[in-house]
Design a protein around this nucleic acid. Structure first.
Length: 257
DNA sequence: AAAATACTCAACCGCGACACG
DNA sequence: CCGTGTCGCGGTTGAGTATTT
């Protein structure tokens, strides 16, 4: 049986987009906005399927796209996010303004993968390929675990609550076995049950990032409060999350739908 | 200069998730 | 609950371009 195709394949243009098609798509979206990709091509007078239009807009025509080479910082961020999220290109792209998932995916496959391999790092696992290094790495890793367990804990007060957090600097190539398990937890029901000492928490309330459980974010529509949270449950991930310096991850982009 | 090879990246394809009737 | 339609994601392809032989 099978499903009917997303659009009529006959009489549809395929392949590279022409300048005229681009102009039609851009002007249509400018006056009508994004959405309803299935009906868009007909409405815009394009002989393309909706999928193709969506892709063209998102990956190429959107006005907020950055273009140009990736910076060193972007490079590092992609590697770090990939070590955390894997091939979740859309999530990674959400952390890089002006970059698309397709662009990052291509860049990963053509540049970063090779770069990591040349450094002796398996791009899939972010672990050292060379087995001889394993024991040495293990020692360093154990030291880091000790540091996390016994050192550099600090306390601070947020909105009347004492928060204990652990600081860890993730050094590239030194702790490739670091467990960076990411869990997306169900809506936060009883916040008090969770020890603030073992996890750094970020949560979303109506699309606004919060970092403390006692703070209610101000929203325009307080009648429809909904929570979703990202729980970085590994105890070795702390304030300096993934070594991303002072940049706290913006989990707005990770908000559960 | 021409052919072969490597590389890049826009675009396509198939699938899963979700919404809706 | 089920079937269908739509959207978005990740993997893959292949045309165009650059580099090497």
């Amino acid at each position: 049986m099978g499903r009917s195709p997303c659009c009529e394949k006959e009489h549809m243009n395929k392949g590279a987009w022409t300048k005229e098609e681009d102009e039609r798509l851009v002007s249509y979206i400018k006056s009508h906005g994004e959405g309803c990709w299935r009906s868009l091509p007909r409405a815009a007078g394009l002989l393309r399927c909706g999928k193709s239009c969506r892709l063209r807009w998102i990956n190429y025509l959107r006005p907020d796209l950055k273009r140009g080479n990736f910076t060193h910082d972007e490079d590092e961020l992609i590697v770090k996010l990939h070590s955390l999220l894997g091939n979740k290109w859309s999530l990674i792209a959400a952390r890089l303004p002006g970059r698309t998932d397709n662009e990052i995916k291509n860049y990963w496959n053509t540049h970063i993968k090779r770069k990591l391999l040349s450094k002796g790092i398996d791009p899939a696992t972010h672990r050292a390929i060379n087995e001889a290094k394993v024991s040495d790495l293990k020692k360093k890793e154990d030291q880091i675990v000790k540091d996390v367990s016994f050192g550099s804990k600090f306390e601070h007060i947020r909105n009347g609550l004492v928060c204990k957090e652990e600081r860890v600097v993730v050094e590239e190539n030194i702790c490739p076995d670091l467990n960076l398990e990411l869990r997306i937890s169900p809506p936060w029901q009883n916040q008090r049950e969770i020890s603030p000492c073992t996890a750094s928490r970020f949560y979303m309330e109506n699309g606004m990032e919060c970092s403390s459980e006692s703070v209610k974010c101000q929203t325009e529509d307080s009648s429809s409060i909904s929570y979703s949270s990202i729980d970085i449950s590994s105890s070795n991930v702390g304030y300096d999350f993934l070594g991303l310096k002072t940049r706290i991850l913006d989990f707005r982009s990770l908000e559960m739908k």
